Amino acid sequence: MKTLLTNPASADKDVAQAVDHLTQAMLHKNIAELKALTAENLTYGHSSGKIQDKKAFIADIETGKSAFKTLEMQNQTITVSGDVALIRHHFSAQALEGHWLLVGRQAFKF
Rank of each mutant, 00 (worst) to 15 (best):
A11Q: 02
A67S: 10
D83C: 09
K55H: 12
H21P: 05
K29I: 03
E62Y: 03
A56Q: 14
N41T: 08
V80I: 14
A16F: 05
H46N: 06
A56N: 14
A18L: 14
G49Q: 08
V19T: 13
D53P: 13
R88A: 07
S10P: 04
G82H: 04
D20L: 09
G64I: 05
S81H: 11
A39K: 13
Q24Y: 00
S66K: 07
T70M: 00
K35M: 10
I51W: 10
Q52H: 14
T23F: 00
A59I: 05
K65M: 07
L37M: 05
A56K: 11
Q76D: 05
E62A: 09
V19Y: 08
N41E: 11
A56S: 14
G45I: 15
K54Y: 02
A11S: 07
K54D: 08
S47T: 15
S81R: 09
G82K: 00
K50S: 09
L71W: 04
Y44R: 12
D14F: 04
T43G: 09
V19P: 12
A25V: 02
Q24F: 00
L34E: 00
I78Q: 00
L42I: 13
Q76S: 12
M26Q: 03
K54E: 06
E33H: 07
E33R: 12
A18E: 07
H89G: 03
A32C: 04
S47C: 12
S10N: 09
V80T: 10
K35T: 08
S66L: 10
